[in-house]
Design a protein around this nucleic acid. Structure first.
Lengths: 126, 126
DNA sequence: CGGCATCCAAAGTGATACTG
DNA sequence: CAGTATCACTTTGGATGCCG
């Protein structure tokens, strides 16, 4: 599991390091914008401005920041066309596509339980 | 999809409302702490203080805040035992368990691609 | 157009104190 | 023990403007 903690025995050192990396990676991708970018990019390759338009409410800064992060983690590939005006395209890599499939599950879940949850909110007093 | 936008035709009103709810719900749950709570609670029912200990790095405030949010969205059930000292237990509901299964997929993904991504980071220059 | 830097507002943290 | 509240501090996010 992602949340496993250090047990103290020396032979666990590698496992612990791997876990802390896993945890860091999890923290990177477990955020609204990153997941929405992955979902959106799952359909097809998109330019920066197209992504900006598709993802309602994302700021220029957050889009840039998250794209860099996703690139760093090899989820997204960035291709620059040296034209005027510049044209930069983003594509999901294989690991990115694999992650997208799990995020699809989250989206499906969202829609499946929408009514259930809406009712719960009313019960809760919005 | 979660990111669908308003098209303007009146008959889309319900769909649009559902989508905005879905989007809001997605924003609620697509965050580091909420997903970690769901993962941790997936194993078994836990008390507030147990959760706090299991989830490394979460603050008292964020735990409270996210638990309320998860309760509001019917992902978590809160059971108060009126004893001294008080005992409050949190359990995943059925929708919560369903969501956990998809988050498990994310965790699996994290571990499967760990090496791949670690290499990419080095290439990227940390 | 895409990216970066800047500034300001908002959210999160950790400590602490107080209630039931 | 669980939860709420407050406060000072840090981090993050949004808006804006400039550059290649």
């Amino acid at each position: 599991m992602v949340t496993k903690q250090y047990s103290g025995s020396p032979e666990d050192a590698d496992l612990t390091r791997a876990d802390s990396l896993a945890r860091e990676l999890f923290s990177d991708i477990a955020n609204k914008w990153a997941l929405l970018i992955i979902e959106t990019l799952g359909e097809r390759t998109l330019r920066f401005s197209e992504l900006r338009n598709e993802i309602e409410g994302i700021s220029h800064k957050m889009l840039t920041q998250n794209l860099r992060m996703l690139e760093r983690n090899a989820l997204v590939e960035r291709e620059v066309h040296p034209t005027v005006p510049p044209r930069v395209e983003y594509t999901l890599t294989e690991p990115g596509q694999a992650l997208k499939r799990t995020v699809d599950g989250m989206c499906d879940w969202t829609h499946r339980y929408l009514g259930h949850i809406e009712a719960s909110r009313r019960r809760f007093g919005t």
